[in-house]
Structure formats: C-alpha cells, structure tokens
Design a protein around this nucleic acid. Structure first.
Lengths: 107, 107
DNA sequence: GCCTATAGTGTCAAAAAGGATACCATGTGG
DNA sequence: CCACATGGTATCCTTTTTGACACTATAGGC
C-alpha cells in the first residue's frame, strides 16, 4: 500500500494499465484534478519504486512517455479488483475521494 | 483508495477478512506497530465508511468486536490481489512501508 | 524579437495523517 | 484501599502529503 497509496497513484497506474504508454500531457488530460507538481511527484515515486518506466525524448518541446514496468503490470489484478469494487459500489459514495470534503462550513 | 489508503487500513481489513471477527486487543496483537490512538482512528474511519462493523458489549472490562460488513467483505478480491502481489515481490522491497525510511543519515 | 508548447522546478503554505504520552471508567480480586 | 484489564479519549507535536503559483529552457513559427 505504501507504493500505491498516494492520492493519485492508483489513478495514474490505472490509466497506464488500460491505455498503455502515455505522455505527461496525456496523463494530465485524463486526470484533470491533479496539479502538475503533484503529478510529477507521484510519477517520480512510482518510477523510484519500479512500477513505472519513464522515457525521456531529448527534444524541444520536451516529450516524456510513461508506461508500466513488468512489476507495475503485475498490479493489474489489484487495479482491476479495485475498479470492479468501485463500480459496484459507486452509488454508495457518489463522488470519489474526499473524506475531508471541502466543507464549506460555517464561516 | 480514499477508503483503504490509511497507513494501517489494509492490514486491519486483511486480518478481519482472514480471521473474521476480532476484538480490539486481538487486532492490536496482530498489528503491533500501530498506536492505540491510530488504530482506533483507522477503525472508526472504516466504520464510518461502512466497511467494518463495530459491536460494543457493555461490560466491564469493555469488549468491542470488529468484523467486516458485506461491503467490506466485497473488498476481499482487492485484499487478496494485494497480498498476492506483495508476496510475489516481497524480495524487491525487503521491509514493508517506509518511503521516508528513518534514514540514520549523516550526523 | 516575441509567442507558443511541453514537461518540468522552486518555494512556500496548508492540511492531513500519524505518533507520544497521559488519563479515564469500572467491576473484580486481593 | 489498591491494582488490574479493556478500549478507549484528550492534548500536543511532528512528519508527510498535497496544493498554489510563479518561473524555466528552447526550437520553431510569424
């Protein structure tokens, strides 16, 4: 869990799992609610942990492709099981994430 | 992931999944590295999220039993997949958890 | 010369999460 | 009267994580 527990890691892994190789901007489009900074961090941690491969093309403008390593691909069953559970119980939680919902709260 | 992403949640869920109903102290014995405070919190969040059932017996000394709800049991495949992956790749990481290992570091 | 696009960095701040430690209630046993 | 056991709470503090926002490099196009 320490490897995939980041707020966006499972989502990133899922997209890489189902779409294969993606470049940075493609991932961002698929995960719009993450900041660039955070996405970079999460991807770097995934890379450090050997789940994701990062391929840099020395071009201008830059091009960087992300894909799952064999190790990362091994998480497929986990990702699928998670997704399945999520879809089955989607109605119970409505929106994803957020325990600490942005409670507009008394002001 | 926001439901099971807590540092100890997946471990707690696993024990409840494989051992069935357990009382607080039994869980603590199975997960020794968590403080009481934190374990209570994690369990309460799991309860809030409907994954765990908490049954209090009004006795002295207190007795509280934890078990998975149907919803929680639905996570079985996820837990199993996670455990499988973990066991297969155990050697790659040696010890669990810890990205920010307690680096003894230069002193 | 200026603008654009991509994949970042740097710095700072906010907020969660987790941990340390001490304390509580209470029926029972000595 | 005192200690014990269980399943907590209450406080306070530290560490981690995430987010906001601004800034960068550089080739190509106008």
């Amino acid at each position: 869990m320490s490897l995939i527990g980041g707020k966006w890691k499972s989502v990133l892994l899922w997209h890489l799992f189902s779409d294969g190789t993606l470049r940075f901007s493609e991932l961002r489009r698929r995960v719009p609610n993450v900041t660039q900074r955070t996405m970079t961090n999460q991807l770097r941690e995934l890379e450090e942990d050997g789940l994701v491969h990062r391929e840099v093309y020395p071009q201008v403008p830059p091009k960087v492709e992300y894909s799952l390593t064999d190790l990362g691909r091994g998480l497929g069953p986990v990702l699928v099981a998670l997704k399945t559970w999520g879809e089955i119980n989607l109605d119970l939680f409505g929106k994803p994430v957020v325990r600490n919902a942005t409670a507009p709260a008394a002001e």
